[in-house]
């Protein structure tokens, strides 16, 4: 296939069928926007999980009758661990005060006895400690005499993992759906274009054009449609991100300690090349049946 000639003919095709292609590209851009938005959600969840996973915490609940000497010894051991950044002792009074300050249940809970709130050691781990390492530390600390219970927030991370898995599945499902949409829309658009240019195809075939020569410009047109749709969607997402991220960032930072991030370079490159590739495939499939002139 002569690429230069195919590009010239594709340009002419795009010019002649521009209305048809504008409609197709806008519809596909919406599909890509949905996919892009989901990917943006997954990217941010991933970033948050990564951040939380790397700033691990362990809470050691102490027995009511724990010997202060045992607690002090435990604290020394903890502070000696390289994975531990900080250890804070929380007394039942402090725990109760903190609970009353944060709880908003609409009832007066100040009458609760302080024994309801056990004393604890809040252990902050250094950045970069993996979840597995955090679990292993928690298991070992649970064997100390003064400790009644250990909370390593594993179940919370498990829930987050489930949420991430669900979001990834949603993104994969949407990607599949978008792929079918792109193939169907581009396929139909090209089919319409082929029907309108049937005489051209017939003339070219009678002049000795190979199937590759006839197919070339249609494949390029499909490729362009896929690429343009994906590019429009990425630009729309970027515009949305730039206009909203400042106002969302402060709220999110307060809630989760992380900031909104945009799609990674590889993700949007994948969106653009994927769009172009699927467009080309959809186009090639739809032209194939019209080549027997």
């Amino acid at each position: 296939m002569d690429v230069k000639s195919a590009m010239t003919r594709a340009r002419r095709g795009l010019r002649e069928e521009r209305r048809l292609y504008v409609v197709a590209v806008s519809s596909l851009a919406v599909a890509f926007l949905c996919l892009g938005a989901t990917l943006l959600g997954v990217t941010n969840l991933d970033a948050a999980a990564d951040r939380w996973g790397q700033s691990g915490r362990i809470t050691l609940f102490l027995k009511d009758d724990a010997d202060p000497q045992d607690v002090a010894q435990l604290r020394v051991v903890l502070e000696g661990l390289s994975d531990v950044r900080e250890v804070a002792h929380v007394t039942p009074e402090q725990a109760k005060a903190s609970f009353l300050e944060e709880a908003d249940v609409g009832a007066d809970l100040s009458a609760l006895p302080k024994e309801v709130f056990p004393a604890s050691l809040e252990v902050s781990l250094v950045n970069g400690v993996t979840r597995e390492r955090s679990e292993s530390i928690a298991t070992r600390l649970g064997q100390f005499r003064a400790v009644s219970d250990v909370e390593s927030y594993g179940s919370w991370f498990q829930k987050l993992d489930h949420l991430l898995w669900g979001a990834r599945m949603l993104a994969a499902g949407l990607a599949l759906l978008v792929m079918f949409c792109v193939i169907a829309v581009i396929g139909n658009t090209i089919r319409l274009a082929v029907a309108r240019r049937r005489q051209e195809i017939q003339v070219m075939k009678l002049c000795g054009a190979t199937n590759g020569f006839v197919r070339g410009p249609f494949v390029l047109e499909g490729m362009f449609q896929g690429f343009a749709s994906a590019l429009l969607a990425v630009l729309a997402l970027l515009a949305g991100y730039l206009s909203l991220h400042e106002s969302v960032d402060s709220t999110l930072a307060a809630l989760t300690g992380s900031r909104v991030v945009f799609l990674g370079v590889w993700t949007w490159l994948l969106l653009l090349t994927g769009g172009a590739l699927i467009g080309a495939i959809g186009s090639a499939l739809s032209v194939r049946r019209y080549l027997s002139v």
């Binding site: 075939k205 009678l206 002049c207 000795g208 054009a209 190979t210």
Partner: peptide, 23 residues
């Protein structure tokens, strides 16, 4: 089928309805 285009490159075909592209 793949050789047919190369046969047609050695032929010139003219029709009653011209078969030229108006645009």
């Amino acid at each position: 089928d793949k050789s047919i285009p190369f046969l047609r490159r050695n032929l010139g075909i003219v029709f009653q309805d011209f078969r030229i592209i108006d645009h």
